[in-house]
Design a protein around this nucleic acid. Structure first.
Length: 554
RNA sequence: GGCCCCGUAGCUCAGUUGGAUAGAGCGGUCGCCUCCUAAGCGAUAGGCCACAGGUUCGAAUCCUGUCGGGGCCGCCA
């Protein structure tokens, strides 16, 4: 719709230049937007004002020339007017708006998919929690956000891969092994002084018990390093499986689980370091090897190889990101907790050092989640092992409410997650509000069917039967959906989908309450049924992007 | 000390990339079920967009500074 209108305006501008009404000969970017107030039309453009400087002419004069050159628009609009300082406002005909309904019916589940990203490969890496403990609520927000960003990009036409980076190398796995081994020895009756730098959570004790029940005391007499390796491997595997299960329960499925250890096994880490060295971007100091990230705007240089010869986590990250681009992605997106924001400059430096545009790496920082119960903040501390797991929250409030709540806010503002509110089955809970709209349409469909009426097919509708203001409003709102998807994809902002859903649901509920869909006149009933099923389709399509279900009854 | 995010209605937050008279939900008040699901709808009250400058035809939006809230600053991962 917007595109078509833009073409008309471009044509009019060209005509003005040809007839020498206007002289600059430059067609600017034509800003077309939906005005905040209905009396300013359906679309409004500020081109005349934008051109004022170039043309050295009053905006309203320019607008007059453009409007004169516009012509009739072949029934697309009923009125064009110049308003305010020089806005050109278009009033589209109802017939034009209701055309979107046929479009929705034609495309069905594909309505809202665009071609914006066609031919571009994007990877979204998210969660990537260390396999040393279960996912907590903070990881849940990252999971919901990353998954929705991936879905939205997919809808916008990008080729998308979802990846989980598994930190299965380094001494954290040894710490996990040691934690388990000590708990195991406790179970065997030994008195153990459990160190503070070991993992404190009760899940460690549970895992140790599992081993004890399977293996008995067989592992007591193994050499220390062998026992550690056993426990690290067993624990890491189990925890990883648990993470995968939790994510599956949350509706999040990864295309790829990428092992950090595999980077070492394939000498990728060495290769990455060697490459930076070759390019003269490294130096030695205090027995360690550093990457001069300050050349690219970081505030400190960073260590790649420690003085004891061990590589840092940053070194494997260099290799990992280098390898990502070698896999052919045009854009790589990392979803991180905001507490890692300090790592952004050094990762951008990695790209610059590899002659890659730093913009090709996009980092989404997801802010903290404050868990509330009864209005009080729930205390959490990973160190002490006291935290609320994602699984517990899913079990308590349900997957739909959980995902919806995580996506209700922009990811760069902190989120209060009110457990009591998320559980409430009432009007205070926005999740049900949206789902209820979908269920209501389904209910209307069931009633129609009982009356022997089926959902009308494409093109079998007389749009002149849709005479209500609310019906036109709904059609306009529906037509906006593909742009909402594009905007959400372009800015990595899935919350835009949430707000759109709430608005669409609100308009539908209002319409529903004002009158009946199924009335005595069959033609009107059919037209309205057609309309509300378009609403249902868009509600469904948008909910799918968020990973929230669209129930047929509630 | 440096860096990142936030500051908009009593509360929680949107704000179409700089547009016209600033929006929603919750909470408050008052109404609506002979009728397709009241998990719903309608009405009403509520604002110095933290503050001060600047940029321009035009600023909640961009720039600078100040104040307030949160977070991060390891040869840990």
């Amino acid at each position: 719709m917007k595109q078509r209108l833009r073409q008309y305006i471009e044509k009019a501008l060209q005509a003005c230049f040809d007839q020498e009404e206007l002289h600059s000969g430059i067609v600017p970017d034509i800003g077309l937007e939906v005005p905040a107030r209905a009396e300013h039309g359906d679309f409004s453009t500020n081109v005349a004002m934008a051109m004022a400087r170039e043309e050295k002419k009053a905006p309203r004069k320019i607008a007059e020339a453009i409007v004169a050159a516009l012509g009739e628009g072949e029934g697309m609009w009923s009125r064009v007017e110049i308003a305010g300082p020089g806005f050109i406002n278009f009033y589209l005909t109802p017939r034009c708006w209701f055309g979107v309904l046929d479009e929705i019916v034609r495309q069905g589940e594909l309505f809202g998919r665009t071609r914006t990203g066609t031919g571009r490969k994007v990877q979204v890496e998210f969660v990537s929690a260390n396999p040393t403990g279960p996912l907590h609520i903070g990881h849940g927000r990252g999971a919901a956000t990353g998954d929705a960003v991936a879905s939205v990009l997919d809808a916008a036409g990008y080729e998308v891969q979802r990846e989980y980076y598994l930190n299965d190398a380094g001494n954290q796995m040894l710490t996990l092994g040691r934690s388990l081994l000590l708990r195991y020895r406790e179970l065997l009756g030994e008195t153990v002084d459990f160190p503070t730098d070991c993992y404190q959570g009760v899940y460690i004790i549970d895992l140790a018990r599992e081993v004890f029940e399977r293996e008995g005391d067989r592992l007591r007499d193994l050499p220390e390093d062998e026992a550690l390796r056993y426990f690290a491997e067993y624990g890491g595997g189990k925890i990883r499986d648990g993470i995968e299960d939790d994510l599956a329960a949350f509706g999040v499925n990864f295309d790829n689980w990428y092992s950090e250890q595999s980077l070492y096994d394939r000498q990728e880490v060495e290769r990455g370091i060697a490459l930076l060295k070759e390019r003269g971007l490294t130096f030695e100091k205090d027995g360690a090897l550093w990457f001069r990230t300050t050349d690219y705007g970081d505030d400190k240089d960073r260590v790649l190889v420690r003085s004891n010869g061990a590589t840092t986590y940053f070194a494997s990250d260099v290799a990992y990101h280098k390898e990502k681009f070698e896999r052919g992605f045009d854009t790589v997106i990392d979803v991180w907790g905001a507490d890692h924001h300090g790592y952004v400059p050094r990762m951008k430096a990695v790209l610059a050092g590899l002659d890659r545009n730093p913009e090709d790496l996009q980092i989404i920082l997801v802010q903290l989640v404050n868990l509330l119960r009864g209005g009080q903040q729930v205390a959490m501390s990973t160190r002490s092992g006291e935290f609320v797991t994602l699984r517990e929250v899913i079990d308590e409030v349900g997957r739909d409410a959980c995902r919806f709540f995580f996506l209700m806010r922009r990811s760069d503002s902190q989120l209060d997650f009110d457990l009591d509110l998320a559980k409430k089955q009432s009007n205070e809970n926005p999740v049900y509000y949206v789902q209820y709209a979908h269920a209501r349409v389904c209910s209307i469909n069931r009633n129609a069917e009982e009356q022997g009426m089926s959902i009308p097919e494409l093109g079998k509708i007389d749009f002149d039967c849709l005479t209500l203001e609310d019906e036109l409003t709904l059609a306009k709102l529906l037509s906006r959906y593909p742009q909402v998807v594009d905007g959400a994809a372009e800015n990595f902002e899935p919350h835009r989908i949430v707000f759109y859903l709430q608005e669409l649901a609100a308009r539908f509920h209002s319409y529903y309450n004002k009158g009946r869909v199924l009335v005595d006149e069959p033609e009107i009933s059919r037209a309205r049924l057609y309309l509300v099923n378009c609403v249902r389709t868009v509600l469904h399509n948008a909910l799918v992007l968020l990973g929230v279900s669209a129930p047929e009854r509630m």
